[in-house]
């Protein structure tokens, strides 16, 4: 299934990490939904995927291929129909308590101020309120929202809301970060700024990341590995590419590097087939 791209250097640290016990291990995962008509719809089929500790893996694929479904199964929000999910060597049962999840849609509690939204994430861990507020203030500063603590979500821009959500996720110091097209709703410039912010925070404290996007450039700029999924239904993994670009990276600048283009070309060759397949299926469905 997986094919390594012919890329310049195989970094020793990445291969060492891959050899260790993975943080996320998906084996033979099938996820099937019952449609309203009573038919069964196989979203993804026979997925094997490992994510090493500290590894940034991005999943790309055509629209509706089940990328988010895979993420939700890893989060424990969705129970796979077959196969199993292992988190740090233990079978996942119920919600994934080791993972933080950054959603595409607005997930902040609209009735709480920015600081309360961040601080409340510590409540389930039993952190006292005063301490939680102090740490939340600290996290808001780290995501560049120092003066916005008392704003309600509707008083913040889309990018600022994402920053609060990022702080809310990271304050719990989760071992695994799951992100479902988190910067999808943002404009191009804000996406780049958010991407750089994410990379900075991740570099300071490297966690296993499973990042879903349909934007291949974003995927390459962010990740250590890009996984390509086939068009649905019963989508599988059709490509697995290592991105050997030096870090630290700047999302905007890295796109101009020749190495970036080489990787882009290699992955796009695999992704294009699937995108076209998904597109023609969509055309057929409309006829």
């Amino acid at each position: 299934m997986s094919q390594g791209a012919a890329l310049p250097v195989q970094s020793p640290s990445a291969s060492a990490a891959a050899a260790a016990r993975p943080d996320v291990c998906l084996r033979g995962l099938d996820i099937t939904f019952a449609l309203k008509t009573g038919e069964l719809h196989a979203a993804v089929k026979n997925i094997d995927l490992d994510i090493a500790p500290g590894e940034f893996v991005t999943i790309v694929g055509p629209t509706g291929c089940g990328k988010s479904t895979l993420l939700n199964a890893t989060a424990g929000l969705l129970k796979p129909s077959a196969g199993h999910v292992e988190i740090q060597g233990a079978a996942l049962n119920g919600l994934n308590g080791k993972a933080g999840y950054l959603f595409q849609a607005d997930a902040l509690m609209p009735w709480k101020t920015a600081i309360d939204n961040v601080a409340v994430a510590l409540e389930p861990m039993g952190v006292p309120k005063a301490e939680a507020l102090k740490r939340a203030q600290d996290w808001l500063a780290r995501v560049g929202l120092k003066g916005f603590a008392q704003r309600y979500p509707h008083m913040l821009s889309g990018g600022q809301r994402k920053r609060v959500a990022l702080a809310q996720m990271l304050i719990r110091d989760p071992q695994i970060l799951l992100m479902d097209e988190p910067f999808g709703p943002l404009d191009a410039q804000t996406r780049q700024i958010m991407g750089n912010l994410l990379l900075d925070l991740w570099a300071a404290n490297k966690k296993a990341v499973m990042f879903v996007t349909h934007d291949l450039e974003e995927a390459i700029a962010l990740s250590d590995r890009v996984v390509v999924m086939s068009a649905g239904p019963a989508a599988g993994i059709v490509g697995d590419f290592r991105v050997e670009l030096p870090r630290p990276r700047d999302i905007a600048e890295i796109r101009t590097e020749p190495a970036f283009h080489a990787i882009h070309k290699a992955i796009w060759a695999s992704l294009r087939v699937e995108v076209q397949k998904a597109y023609s299926q969509g055309e057929e469905a409309q006829q």
Partner: peptide, 26 residues
């Protein structure tokens, strides 16, 4: 909102905390 609810659950909230922070304000 299902997203707000899923997010609160991913933050580790138990039933009582969900009631207090999500259902009750809604």
């Amino acid at each position: 909102s299902p997203t707000v609810l899923a997010n609160a659950r991913m933050l580790g909230m138990n039933e009582r905390q969900l009631l207090r922070h999500v259902y009750w304000p809604a």
